[in-house]
Design a protein around this nucleic acid. Sequence first.
RNA 1: GGGCGCGUAGCUCAGUGGGAGAGCACUCGCCUUACAAGCGAGGGGUCGCAGGUUCGAAACCUGCCGCGCCCACCA
Length: 875
Amino acid sequence: MTQNPDTQHAQTPSLPAQYLPGEVEQRRYERWVAGGYFRADAHSDKPPFTIVLPPPNVTGSLHVGHALDHTVQDALVRRKRMQGYEALWLPGMDHAGIATQNVVERQLAAQGLSRHDLGRERFIERVWRWKEESGGAILGQMRRLGDSVDWDRERFTMDPGLSRAVQTIFKRLYDDGLIYRAERIINWCPRCLTALSDIEVEHSDDDGELVSIRYGEGENSIVVATTRAETMLGDTAVAVHPDDDRYRHLIGTEVELPLTDRRIPIVADEHVDPEFGTGAVKVTPAHDPNDFEIGQRHHLPSLVVMDERGVITVPGPFEGLDRFEARPAIVAALREQGRIVAEKRPYVHSVGHCSRCKTTIEPRLSLQWFVKTGPLARAAGDAVRDGRVRIEPPEMAKRYFAWVDNMHDWCISRQLWWGHRIPVWYGPEDEVVCVGPGEEPPSGEGWRQDEDVLDTWFSSALWPFSTLGWPERTADLAKFYPTSVLVTGYDILFFWVARMMMFGLYAMDGRQPFDVVALHGIVRDQHGKKMSKSLGNVVDPLDWIERFGADATRFTLARGANPGQDVPVSEEWCQGSRNFCNKLWNATRFALMNGAHVDGDLPAVDELPTIDRWILSRLQQVTAEVDEHFEAFEFAKVCDALYHFAWDDVCDWYLELSKPVLAAGGRAGEIRRRVLGHVLDRLLRLLHPVLPFVTDELWTALTGGETVMIAAWPTAAHELRDEAAESEVAMLQRVVTEIRRFRADQGLRPAQRVAARLDGLADAGIGEHESLIRALARLDEGGADFRASATLAVAGGVAVALDTRGAIDVAAERARLEKDLAAVEKELAQARAKLANPAFVEKAPEPVVAKVRERLANAEADLARITAALEALPA
RNA sequence: GGGCGCGUAGCUCAGUGGGAGAGCACUCGCCUUACAAGCGAGGGGUCGCAGGUUCGAAACCUGCCGCGCCCACCA
């Protein structure tokens, strides 16, 4: 790193030349917490703005996806707080039943232990210890990210209060007939040894083989096709379509089931597709959901042929074999009997896997608890349909409807230990008593509580109101429900959002849990690939925070966050964000060194020079854009607008244009100091939601205020919009850029002073800025002795001539002019063609036509100017 | 099988009816006293393909090709 020691000196700036996030972030966060700025007051008069944090699982630490989620929420909350809302961001964590239990079981396994070695009570104690450890790590990460959550209201899904909420709603649903217990086919994980809900099953296309097996003998035999030969031991029928002529004569007869001593009926069922396979289906009601339905319709018995680990239990040669060992063994045995008619391999079909451990799901007949989703799901769909709840982006609503409108009953019992125990007691005479909170469970001989716990999403579904104190009628609930925005990834739309809707509407008497669902995408790597340990492209947010700062990390994520779209990130982009923070740092540092300050009102507009009116006008425009984009959850656009305003307008132009007047001092200098202070003040406020740390550090240094956190959010002042100033500065910028390009083309080094005369500035309306133009383009006053000239292209048909005293590189200049000429001629041809088209002139809106006319005029003027310049070039 | 989305510069993405953009990367020149984590200038795209609508299409419609995701009781 080259650094001129002389530049480090003199003014003894109070701020170092580089932004060093580490120390600043820690100090700032402690002050925010100590100042109580994160605390929300349920009794204030301010309008509420509420976000409940989607509770992270206590399974480890936060990943970069959480960092995105938190950044978005923090930005929303910080802005609303500045806007004067009573802003509550409520933090907490999820006990994450099966996921957490698996983590702890893996830890035990490493010591050669299983949960059964410890027993239920000691195992749960062990999980609680892990929860403290993991939870503590997560809280630390949230602080590092800068989350402005109300720590006094932190919740955990297994807190006593939230557990009461679980019991309360369970009891209420049970009494309303919306929770029931039944023997059904459920998704069973033979490794986790628990039932799973439909959405905890991931389907993938796996290779299998479809074998055709002849059941029965001779004329009355029938051939069935299956991918799961091992389940044939549990077959209790063969089904064919009632209209299938091939099999009509067999309906009502029985066939011998091979490898067993049983005979099974052939039944007719509409469900069978005559086109598929042989058109005859083996029916195994205990091991296939469709077959179960067929079995119900035809009163078939259900034979369970496997235990909970997927091991065959039918006495005989296959007993004790795992289901995947049994399959080839049974096929081999059948082949020996000459019963395998055809095999098709590989046959790709969809197979369900446990979302936690990837084990192949075994559909299994078992007695479980269910939520009857029909009425709840209908209400959840209607709330979105009638506009009470808005889903952003709206396209995602389609997915939501597709799901809530086709929802099966929800299996909520889990054969786990970590979670909310099902509040149901069974009596000695098979009595069933659902026990509400505060009620005494039945006691006495033979009574026992259900061993199972609830699906972890059952308690998550209560999160927007259980965290506010429900079922008590708390001040929090009155003030902060419904919550304002739910921010989460589209990947848990079904898992969580739909279920919060169902339970929220049910428990809160039809009041929705949130007004808006703002969905973001998944964080991916710089090539759009999903992050995974095996690809080695996982980003640890703490790593980035350490190296680039929390603000840079947040900015990188927010900058990629288009609604509902995945967010690609990379280390280089985070570096870029860090650089942006540093840019802000140095801009403010420059301003402070030059005496910029914030006090009182701005000078009257008519007293302001063009340059100030221009930057103030741009500021209003950006303020309006930022507000618009915030309201639309367009965080990428919020970041983009502020990035370009800060870097391009403020740093590259406004500060550069200000250097002469700041150096000169006087009244003009004083005005500039105040406007500069004002612009930075507002810019830092606008950036604060996304970049909380660096903006607070700079804003307090600039203004002497307490914290930018509670500074008022800027509103756009339309009276400060000034199109004349904007176009004047645009012209100035074009002239400066043209001269710089000429210099670059001519190989004139920046340090090389060039004496030159500028003509045409007054015609371009920027005559008063000549000295500024000279300063930015590094041109000295020219003498009379010009030997070469270059004429610069400028909009509006105005040419500004620049004559240099020294000889120029004629070839280079000619080449450039010829290139410009070609471009202008093309432009000219296009504009002429358009205007020559009567249909265009007639039908196109007037402003469009006017614009083309203007383009034509400009092009004509440019053509003349360039031609003249070419002719003026020495041969 | 059903549904959704995407295809724009080397990479990642904005742009939804009127002169092709940004960040990063790249080339050239610079320590020009806020910032080399910087400054200035520049190169680079028949907007997936083919039709259609329109005075005008990257944008709207249809089809095709390619990619991704979600859902599903495909024996």
